[in-house]
Amino acid sequence: MSSRLEVWAPDGLPEVAPGDDLAGLAVAAVGADLADGDVVCVTSKVVSKAEGRTRVGDREDAIDEETVRLVARRGATRIVRHRLGLTMAAAGVDASNVEAGSIVLLPLDPDASARDLRRRLLELTGANVGVVVTDTAGRAWREGQTDIAIGAAGIVVAEDFAGRTDPYGNPLAVTLPAVADELAGAAELAQGKLAGRPLAVVRGRADLVLPPGEDGPGATSLVRPEGGDLFGFGAREAVVRALAGAEVDRLPFGAPVPADELAAALARLPDAADRTAVAAVCFAHGWTWEDWQRRDGRA
């Protein structure tokens, strides 16, 4: 047995304008090539253009509007938590591949956009396909960017291997390939950044495509909830937020840790009597200084 994956990105998709039938444009570009089990990947930018999410205005103001909170800052670069839950640079606001002076915001609801596109493609072609709405994102600890799924419909977005065993009999505990992101990355290889190919078709993973009428959990299910990420703040921002101790900043640090874990962290401080430092460490671990004093028998 062998496994084969095909990816192609057609030329000929015209400039997309607000109100355009994106599914109709896609069918015109792909032609009769679309088949059951294919996955159609489309960039968020053309989805946003079709949905009227392009505007003239200040990019920084748009970033502010789309941002839930700041995660990290390096000079002028802001990594933020977007209103969709995504953590990304500049809240996904883009000024490339668009008329000078204009900016493009992410779709209001990429999963809903994917569902609409999937339903329309089925109407036009009779093919049961999955749909992924893609966008470019950086990765912690690594240079460069890759495309990820920010919207999805009709596909399994993550394969859960927990509880299975590998060929050697070893149990798999937390193996969860984010296949929607992998499909997005594969599509970007065929699309390229400057070739004007915002659409790609991936063939060879029909096992991931759900039956008609079943859209699945969408790409939203891949977003960790606030407090569930080990890196809720950047390194510098975390120090400042912990020292400031604002109640609104508590959730990104995660759930309160057991007392012994907090005690171990406090033991690393050079001065255990430094109340400011102790309070900051307590805050970062989900505790208050007062609660720790009572727990420690000092209050």
Rank of each mutant, 00 (worst) to 15 (best):
A244E: 13
A244Y: 08
A244N: 11
A244W: 00
A244S: 10
G245C: 05
G245P: 02
G245Y: 06
G245L: 05
G245A: 01
G245V: 01
A246Y: 02
A246F: 02
A246W: 05
A246N: 03
A246P: 07
A246V: 06
E247A: 14
E247M: 10
E247G: 05
E247W: 05
E247I: 11
E247T: 04
E247N: 00
E247F: 04
V248N: 02
V248I: 13
V248S: 09
V248H: 05
V248F: 05
D249Y: 07
D249W: 08
D249P: 10
D249N: 04
D249V: 02
R250Q: 08
L251H: 09
L251S: 13
L251I: 11
L251D: 13
L251P: 06
P252K: 02
P252C: 11
P252H: 03
P252S: 05
P252A: 06
P252T: 00
P252I: 10
F253R: 09
F253W: 09
F253S: 03
F253I: 09
F253G: 06
G254E: 06
G254Y: 08
G254S: 03
G254T: 12
G254M: 06
A255P: 02
A255Y: 09
A255K: 08
P256N: 12
P256A: 07
P256D: 06
P256Y: 09
P256S: 02
P256C: 06
P256W: 14
V257K: 12
V257N: 08
V257S: 06
V257A: 11
V257P: 00
V257M: 10
V257F: 00
P258N: 13
P258R: 14
A259F: 12
A259R: 15
A259V: 14
A259E: 03
A259K: 02
A259W: 12
D260W: 14
D260S: 11
E261F: 08
E261W: 13
E261P: 05
L262V: 07
L262M: 00
L262E: 06
L262I: 03
L262F: 01
L262T: 01
A263M: 03
A264D: 14
A264S: 08
A264Q: 15
A264T: 13
A265L: 12
A265V: 03
A265I: 01
A265N: 06
A265S: 10
L266Y: 01
L266M: 04
L266K: 11
L266Q: 11
L266D: 04
A267E: 12
A267W: 12
A267P: 05
A267V: 11
R268W: 01
R268M: 13
L269M: 08
L269D: 10
L269F: 10
L269R: 13
P270C: 12
P270V: 08
P270S: 09
P270H: 13
P270T: 13
P270M: 09
P270W: 07
D271L: 05
D271E: 11
A272C: 00
A272K: 15
A272R: 15
A272N: 05
A272P: 12
A273K: 15
A273P: 01
A273Y: 00
A273E: 15
D274R: 13
D274K: 15
D274F: 10
R275L: 11
R275P: 01
R275W: 02
R275I: 07
T276A: 15
T276P: 04
T276N: 14
A277Q: 15
V278T: 08
V278E: 08
V278H: 04
V278M: 02
V278C: 03
V278D: 00
A279K: 14
A279I: 08
